[in-house]
Amino acid sequence: MQALLFISKKIDALNEAIGQAISWALLAAVLICSGNALVRYGLNNSSNGWLEIQWYLFAAVFLLGSSYTLRRNEHVRIDVVTGRFSQRTQVWIDLFGFIFFLLPMVALILYLGIPYALHSIQSQEMSSNAGGLIVWPAKLLIPLGFLLMLLQGFSEIIKRVGFLRGLLDASAFEKQVVTPEDEIAAIKEANQIK
Score class of each variant (00 low, 15 high):
Arg40Val: 09
Gln54Ile: 15
Ser67Pro: 00
Asn44Gly: 09
Ala59Met: 12
Asn44Arg: 10
Gly65Cys: 04
Leu27Tyr: 06
Trp55Lys: 10
Glu52Asn: 09
His75Lys: 07
Phe62Cys: 08
Ile32Arg: 00
Ala29Asp: 00
Trp55Ala: 15
Leu31Arg: 00
Gly19Asn: 03
Cys33Gln: 04
Gly42Ser: 05
Ile53Pro: 03
Ile32Asn: 01
Ser67Tyr: 00
Ser67Asn: 03
Gly19Thr: 05
Leu63Asp: 07
Ser66Trp: 12
Ala37Ser: 11
Ser47Gly: 14
Ala37Phe: 09
Cys33Asn: 06
Asn45His: 13
Asn48Leu: 07
Arg72Cys: 14
Gly42Trp: 02
Ala28Tyr: 01
Arg77Val: 08
Trp55Leu: 15
Leu51Lys: 07
Ala37Val: 13
Trp24Asn: 07
Asn36Asp: 15
Leu70Gln: 03
Gly35Ile: 00
Asn48Tyr: 11
Thr69Phe: 05
Gly42Arg: 03
Val39Cys: 14
Ser23Gly: 14
Asn73Lys: 06
Thr69Arg: 02
Trp55Cys: 12
Ser66Met: 15
Val61Phe: 13
Gly35Asn: 02
Tyr41Ala: 05
Ala37Trp: 06
Asn73Ile: 02
Val30Cys: 05
Glu74Pro: 04
Ser47Leu: 12
Asn48Lys: 04
Ala37Thr: 11
Ala60Cys: 05
Asn36Pro: 06
Ser67Lys: 02
Trp50Lys: 08
Phe58Pro: 01
Arg40Lys: 15
Leu70Arg: 01
Leu38Ala: 14
Leu43Tyr: 10
Glu74Ser: 12
Ser46His: 12
Ser67Trp: 02
Gly42Ile: 01
Arg77Thr: 08
Gln54Ala: 08
Ser46Asn: 14
Arg40Gly: 05
Val39Gly: 12
Trp55Ser: 14
Ala21Trp: 08
Leu27Ser: 10
Phe58Glu: 02
Leu64Ile: 10
Asn44Trp: 06
Leu27Glu: 03
Asn44Phe: 09
Glu52Met: 07
Val76Asp: 08
Gly19Glu: 04
Ser34Lys: 04
Leu43Trp: 07
Ser46Leu: 14
Asn44Cys: 08
Ala28Ser: 01
Trp24Tyr: 14
Gln20Leu: 11
Arg71Asp: 10
Asn45Asp: 15
Val61Leu: 10
Ile78Asn: 11
Ser23His: 09
Gly35Val: 01
Glu52His: 11
Tyr41Phe: 14
Ala60Gln: 02
Tyr56Asn: 14
Ser46Gln: 12
Leu64Cys: 08
Ser66Tyr: 12
Leu51Asn: 14
Ile53Asp: 05
Leu43Thr: 09
Leu70Phe: 07
Ser34His: 08
Ser34Cys: 11
Arg72Leu: 14
Ala28Cys: 04
Ile22Asp: 05
Ile32Pro: 00
Ser46Glu: 11
Asn48Thr: 13
Cys33Trp: 02
Gln20Asp: 08
Asn36Tyr: 11
Ala60His: 00
Val61Asn: 04
Tyr68Arg: 01
Asn45Glu: 15
Leu51Ser: 13
Trp24His: 12
Ser66Lys: 10
Asn44Thr: 12
Ala59Asp: 12
Tyr68Thr: 06
Ser66Cys: 13
Val76Trp: 05
His75Trp: 09
Leu51Ala: 14
Trp50Gly: 10
Ile53Asn: 05
Ser34Trp: 07
Val39Ile: 15
Cys33Glu: 06
Thr69Cys: 13
Gly19Phe: 02
Asn45Ala: 15
